[in-house]
Computed example of a mutant assay.
Amino acid sequence: MTEAAGALESPTPSALPSVFREVMAAVCTPVSVVTAIREGRPHGTTVSAFASLSMNPPMILVSLDRSSELLAVIRESGAFGVNVLSSGQSALARQFATKGGAGKFTGVRWQVEARVPRLPDAGGFLACDAVRFVEGGDHVVLLGLVRAADTVSGPPLTYHARSFGTHTALEERSA
């Protein structure tokens, strides 16, 4: 903001995508692997655009690239899982972040739970019915009705400033 005008100085249209990317890199997000199954074969991808939407009924939202193979599988099956990763699972996050579906599950333990692939070592798990697909630019926001949930204690894996890390609580300061 400029002091004199108190107005926001917008970047030029050509610079906006770069500035937007930098702003979003400063946002700390949870890291999850979204999964679905087709013909007995698991599919999955790493996402950081995931959030709680509603408590009653329990709903979440996930953002997937519109060209994602996983999105096509979810549209077909109507169900997906969200495996919220733990702080020690950054290698797993990288493995599922690669393009293309082949090989993502190589060497990865998984099981079918509530009709979707579950990664048993993940810190949290949600099985959802896909209830709505909302177009948004180059992504689709998927609204999911949660029908099963489980949690394992431990610190979460987070993504901030293009790096994996974890959350630690701030200590309360006395006055």
Rank of each mutant, 00 (worst) to 15 (best):
R41H: 12
P13I: 01
V34C: 05
R132I: 04
F133T: 10
T35P: 07
P30A: 15
L142C: 14
N56F: 06
E171K: 13
A26F: 06
L8E: 05
L119S: 04
F20N: 09
S174T: 15
L170K: 03
G6R: 07
A102R: 14
E9Q: 09
F50M: 08
V152S: 11
E113P: 01
R94G: 04
A72C: 02
R115P: 01
M24V: 15
P155M: 05
S86M: 06
D138M: 06
S48Y: 02
R21V: 00
D129P: 02
P120L: 07
T12D: 00
A25T: 05
K104V: 14
S10Q: 00
F133M: 09
H160C: 13
R115W: 03
S14T: 03
P13F: 00
V134E: 11
G107T: 05
V27T: 11
V33E: 01
P57M: 09
L71G: 01
D138S: 15
S52G: 08
M24Y: 12
V34K: 02
G6S: 07
P58Q: 07
A51K: 01
E135F: 07
V73S: 05
T158H: 00
R66Y: 01
A25K: 13
L71E: 01
G154A: 05
V140Q: 09
R132N: 15
G144C: 08
T166E: 00
T35A: 12
S153R: 04
G144M: 13
L61K: 01
T98L: 14
R21Y: 03
V82C: 05
S77M: 04
S10E: 03
F20M: 11
V146T: 07
E39K: 13
V82Q: 02
L64Q: 01
L53V: 12
E171C: 10
F105W: 14
A175R: 15
T106D: 15
Q111H: 04
R162K: 06
L119A: 06
V33S: 03
Q111F: 01
S68Q: 04
A79Q: 12
G100K: 11
Y159I: 07
A127D: 01
V23H: 09
A79S: 11
H43L: 10
G137V: 10
Q95A: 15
C28Q: 12
G107Q: 06
V33M: 02
E172D: 12
P30F: 08
F80R: 06
L8C: 03
I37P: 01
E9S: 07
S90Q: 10
G44F: 05
L157F: 04
S90M: 03
P13L: 02
P30R: 04
Q89P: 05
L145H: 14
L170M: 07
V108Q: 06
V19Y: 04
A26K: 12
A4R: 12
A4K: 13
L71F: 00
T151M: 11
R94Q: 14
R118L: 13
P58L: 12
G136A: 15
F133R: 10
A97G: 14
L126V: 11
L53D: 03
V23F: 13
V140I: 15
A72F: 02
V112C: 09
T12K: 00
V19S: 01
T106G: 11
E171A: 15
V47E: 07
L157Q: 03
S68Y: 00
G100E: 08
V84S: 07
S14K: 08
G44T: 10
